[in-house]
Design a protein around this nucleic acid. Structure first.
Length: 363
DNA sequence: CACGCGTGGCT
DNA sequence: TAGCCAAGCGT
């Protein structure tokens, strides 16, 4: 399988890296806390999308103590719109763990770093090498693509066998003397040169030794697992606005999507339909809500695509005079529209609120 | 271990 | 355009 010696690969890769510096906000950082934050933000996320979030987060929580002493809701508000919110929940949990159990000192061995919630093989290797110069190879999507093509790896990284092969290769190629520079270089090379589609093979320093290129099968590597087709879900949300510019919101507490974020009272259905007034009334009662003099003004439809789900959302815009019985309210809160910027909402709900509230709120 | 988990950019 | 993919992790 090996078509290029590790020594030759390292040398060319590090040369390429010197010639193609990638000036991102987190490059050349050595503080483990800061590296950790950046790596978690970057999980499954493009650098361009990550930058503003990294900057916001470091400004609000410049040190581990700041993060550990914050509330999860504060962090989620900063994380709003970035997606994969379990990252924020785990970040918060890990910060508290380090402060309370490790005396506020960031762990400095691979196995201890790996124990932090939200830190897996990739992130542990990244922190170990970047912050502590430990010789652990990062194996992310970029590395899988580079090594998969270079060595013509015939199995998918998502299989046990493939995973084993990729880690074996990654360890062979890793430069033990400068694991930090090597890891950064191979990811940068994957991200900017050995691109997923239309890679820049003509100017590639390895193309003469690249297995996939030599056999003319660049597009076949790395081997991918077939992706499951996404299903469609139908959501119904009720925007309940009273005459005092207040609306009703609730915090998601179940274990599925958007956990711990805020939303409107509503329901998920498996099939397309439009709720009738009695059905709306009945569903509102599940939240303990009984409205006085209400009027369904209009229904706004939105579509939102997730990797595994196609969301079809109907927002029912309802104005009302007051609630019949406030004592039975079930896990909902009534908040002034002008305070909505203090609550973290999923992207699509924030978009709807921005576009449809007849009283604006401060950003 | 196959699947759930967000959002955005690219082809 | 509908699918693919992006510095993955937890269960």
């Amino acid at each position: 399988m090996g078509t290029i010696s590790p020594i030759s690969f390292r040398k060319k890769l590090l040369t390429w890296s010197e010639e193609h510096p990638r000036n991102l906000p987190w490059t050349n950082i050595v503080d483990p806390y800061t590296i950790w934050i950046s790596e978690v933000i970057l999980q499954q996320t493009r650098a361009e999308q990550a930058i503003p979030y990294y900057q916001k987060l470091m400004k609000s929580f410049p040190s581990l103590a700041h993060l550990a002493n914050s509330s999860l809701d504060e962090l989620l508000l900063i994380w709003e719109g970035l997606g994969y919110y379990s990252r924020a929940r785990n970040l918060h949990k890990a910060a508290k763990f380090i402060q309370n159990e490790l005396n506020g000192v960031f762990p400095n061995t691979y196995s201890e770093i790996l124990k932090l919630p939200g830190v897996g093989d990739y992130t542990a290797a990244a922190i170990s090498s970047f912050a502590f110069k430990l010789a652990f190879p990062v194996v992310d999507g970029n590395v899988v693509r580079v090594l998969g093509r270079l060595c013509g790896v015939e199995s998918s990284f998502h299989s046990t066998e493939g995973r084993k092969q990729f880690y074996q290769l990654a360890n062979q190629f890793l430069d033990q003397k400068v694991p930090d520079l090597y890891n950064q270089a191979i990811m940068d090379f994957g991200a900017t040169h050995c691109l997923p589609s239309n890679p820049l093979c003509n100017s590639c320093p390895f193309h003469l030794q690249c297995t996939a290129y030599k056999i003319g099968r660049i597009q076949d590597f790395p081997i991918k697992k077939s992706r499951q087709k996404s299903s469609e879900k139908f959501l119904h949300y009720f925007l309940l606005q009273d005459s005092k510019d207040r609306i009703i919101i609730r915090q998601r507490d179940d274990r599925s999507i958007w956990k711990n974020l805020f939303e409107l009272p509503g329901l998920f259905l498996d099939q397309e339909k439009t709720l009738t007034a009695p059905q709306i009334k009945k569903n509102l009662r599940l939240f303990g809500i009984a409205l006085n003099n209400y009027k369904i003004l209009k229904i706004k439809q939105y579509h939102h695509l997730l990797t595994h789900l196609k969301l079809n959302i109907k927002f029912y815009i309802i104005h009302y005079d007051g609630l019949k019985d406030q004592k039975t309210l079930n896990k909902i809160q009534m908040v002034e529209i002008k305070t909505l910027s203090k609550y973290a909402f999923p992207k699509i709900i924030r978009l709807f609120l921005d576009q449809n509230l007849n009283r604006r709120y401060a950003k």
